[in-house]
Structure formats: structure tokens, C-alpha cells
Design a protein around this nucleic acid. Structure first.
Lengths: 225, 225
DNA sequence: ATCGATCTTTACGGGTTCCTTACCCGCCGA
DNA sequence: TCGGCGGGTAAGGAACCCGTAAAGATCGAT
């Protein structure tokens, strides 16, 4: 019973997608132009957007940017174009998945399921993180190290919140950068080095021997309890 | 929406298959000879191959072998021959399904749907690999040998992930190199020797007698459970 | 306008990882 | 017996990644 917005100017494909998505139990909203898509999205707030890059008025990428200004909704991009540039650009701007036309309906529906699964998993952010002597309260933005209050800056909070959401697991550089700084910052790895260092100086007993904020070389960072 | 390559020298059957596949929404590529089939396949990379065993130049089995050297594409074999030998041989060489002529179009289309469904299901990479005493967790990038944590480098993870995706089967040198190092590294076989050695020293009980990371001389490597 | 806090950007050193080369062996056909 | 081939092993230097410090840039509050 999730609501899906499908944006495409090809009426045949639109119809096919509507039939298949309805058969899977989704409510389907349609838009044939970029302007209509943006308007419908903010009016109806669907849980998922299927977005064709080839639109008559706005560029699909432009639609994606406008959605991302105010929403984290999962977006699956469709494109007939072969160039890898489109793919990179779309994913950088915050698309969750990219499907090249032609595609199989089974594959498409699998990607829809995957996108919705990821979105629902992300919805539940933890409110606190506690480890030996360390406490982080993400609701009140209040942190203590051995009952001593410690001050974290806004960006430090966002980094820690993202890591706490997946605590114990590696969060890749790209994921971390995209959720904290924005979809187009996936390659600015040096930000992370600076902030990891700063955060460790605050939350770790021995910052040179971190026990909580762990680096996995070449992969990303992990918040350990 | 998927692209299907149909290989047959019978122009009547070719026409029938094209009409029916198009009616089901597939894009159809045609080949009348084995050589043409192989060339078209690697040029166009369709999602499914329909292959008649009776061809004027190459044997159909030979075409299948050439496809399997570099691709896991689902292949449905057609044959007028009655002998069970053909069926066994085709399936042994990696065909996904076998249809004897004459066949009903409904049955044929059902098998096409099934093959495509399996293929899209398999596209998702496995999250873990477990064998006697060895555990690889590709999500958290965490590996243990007899409950002892062991450290793998990013490239070692990528090699193992690719092998685990097809565990039990041989992955060719070319495929491994291309997915791990990039499309232009298909000939740098020496990378693999070095990394296979390094990985064995970590995951194998006796690296000189590997039980998991197996070499198939002249073909590639296989990850054995 | 000035100041302080925060974020961005740059630079450098050390450690790890990767690439490259060289040499070894066993197998096989000439 | 000899190369040739494919694979395993070892080692050094290059490239890369990370931690660290510190200097600009930005912004809001005073």
C-alpha cells in the first residue's frame, strides 16, 4: 500500500509500469512532465519515485535536484541513454538506483522492492548510543564521556548519528559523505579524515588508539560499542 | 523490455519466435549461424539467448561453450534431436533450460519467463560465505577463520566477493580481473597469482594445499565451500 | 567591524596496500 | 633433455590511505 510516483513521457511505458506496480499492491501516481512531477510529489508525498531522465520540459536531473532540496525520498532513475556519465551524475545527485532501458520487469520490480526495503530500514534511527563511559543522546544532542559533558559541533553530530545508525558495521566513505554533506560530496574523503580526528579527540580516551571510531582502510568507518 | 538473442537457421521458426517474443515486450536480435551468434552476443550483451543446436557452421554446443567462457547469460537450448545425450551435454555445458522441438509456444514463453526471473534473482550478490571454519561477511567486511578474526585488504575483499557470487563455479581470469580491477585489466593474469597467494595465506589452513580457493589451470579460480 | 566557533582546504609524514619483477616449480610436448 | 606454459612464492619500490596540524573561509553574534 505504498504510493509510487512514476514520471515518464512515454505513455506506453507509463501504462506498463502502472499495471505492474498496481499488481504488486502499490498505489500509482503519474506525471508526464518535470514540472508536474515536482508539483505532484510535494502535494502527495509518495514513498517512492520512478523518474525517467528524458522529459519534454525539464531535464530529469533537474527534477531530481529539486526533489532532493527538500526530500530524502528514494528515487529510481530510468534512462535510455548508454553513457555512463548520466549514471554517475544521477547517482551523485542522490538517485538511489539506476535502470537502463530496456530492462526486464522482474529486474525493475526487484529494484523497487530493494529501494523500499532500504528506505524503511533507514527510517528507524537510534536515539542514543552507549558504550563504556560514552553516551550520545541524538534527540537532545547531549553527549557525556565518563559523566563529563562534552561538546560536539553540528557536523560531528551528523557524522556520529549516521555511524550510530549502523553501529558495529562499516559505513563506506561514500555513504557517510553523501548522508552528512550531501549527495554530490561522495568523493571528498579528506573531510572524513579531519572530522574523524576531531571526533576522536573528544570521545576517545586515547585518541591515538581509538576504541569506538574505527577506520577500515580503503572501506570506511565503524562505530564500535 | 529485455533483449533476447535468437539463434536458429530455420527462417520459419525464427520468424515465429520473433513475433511471439516481441508480443511479450522483448527486443529480439537474430542470428542464423554460430559465428554470427557469438559475435552478436558479445557486441549487444542481450539478457537471454535462445539457441538451436542444429546450425550450419558450428555445433550449437560449441556456441554455448564460447558464450560460457565469458558470460553467465541464461541460455535456453532448442533441439529437434531425440537423443537424451544432447540434453545432458547441453545442460552440462551450462544451458539453463532445454526445449525439444516441436514445442508449444505457451510452454516456450513460460520457460523464457522462468529463465529471466532466475537471472534477475541471481543478480543480487550473496551477503556471506561460510565453509568449514571459514566465514566471510561481505556486508560488514568481517572475516573469521575458526572464530579468529582475520584481516583482508580491500582488493582481497573484492576478489573474494566476485568468487563468492559464483561459488562452486570457475570464474575466468578475465572476468575476475575485469570486475575487480576494471574493464581494461583482462590480461594482467599475474595480479591474480599474487592475490590468490596472499588470500590463501589468510583463509586456508594449509596454504600450499588450498581447499577453498582452487585454481583451474588455464581457466580461472573457484571458491569451494 | 570584530571575534569566536565552525567548516573547508591544504600539506606532510608514516604506515599499509598494491603493483611489478624475478625466480621457482611441475607439467607437457618436441 | 629441453624449452614453453601456467602457476606459486618472495621482495622492493611506488602509490595510496589515513592521521595530524594548521592556515584560510564562512557565518552569526556581539
Amino acid at each position: 500500500m505504498t504510493r509510487v510516483l512514476v514520471v515518464d513521457d512515454d505513455s506506453v511505458l507509463l501504462r506498463t509500469l502502472r499495471i505492474n506496480l498496481r499488481a504488486r499492491g502499490h498505489e500509482v501516481l503519474l506525471a508526464a512532465t518535470g514540472a508536474q512531477a515536482v508539483a505532484t510529489f510535494f502535494a502527495e508525498q509518495p514513498e517512492l519515485v520512478i523518474l525517467d531522465l528524458g522529459l519534454p520540459d525539464l531535464d530529469g536531473i533537474e527534477v531530481l535536484k529539486r526533489l532532493r532540496e527538500r526530500s530524502e525520498v528514494p528515487v529510481i532513475v530510468l534512462s535510455a541513454r548508454q553513457h555512463a556519465d548520466d549514471k554517475v551524475e544521477a547517482l551523485d545527485e542522490g538517485a538511489d538506483d539506476y535502470v537502463s532501458k530496456p530492462f526486464s520487469m522482474d529486474e525493475f520490480l526487484a529494484r523497487v522492492r530493494a529501494a523500499l526495503r532500504r528506505a524503511s530500514a533507514e527510517a528507524e534511527a537510534p536515539e542514543t548510543f552507549t558504550a563504556a563511559g560514552l553516551q550520545l543522546d541524538f534527540v537532545n544532542h547531549h553527549a557525556t564521556r565518563d559523566s563529563e559533558p562534552l561538546h560536539l559541533t553540528p557536523t560531528e553530530w551528523r557524522v556520529l548519528a549516521e555511524l550510530a545508525k549502523h553501529h558495529g558495521r562499516v559505513v563506506s566513505h561514500e555513504d557517510l559523505l553523501r548522508t552528512v554533506w550531501g549527495p554530490s560530496y561522495g568523493r571528498e574523503h579528506h573531510y572524513l579524515r579531519v572530522f574523524a580526528n576531531q571526533i576522536r579527540r573528544k570521545i576517545e580516551l586515547d585518541p591515538s588508539q581509538p576504541r569506538h571510531l574505527i577506520n577500515e582502510p580503503g572501506l570506511g568507518y565503524r562505530l564500535q560499542q
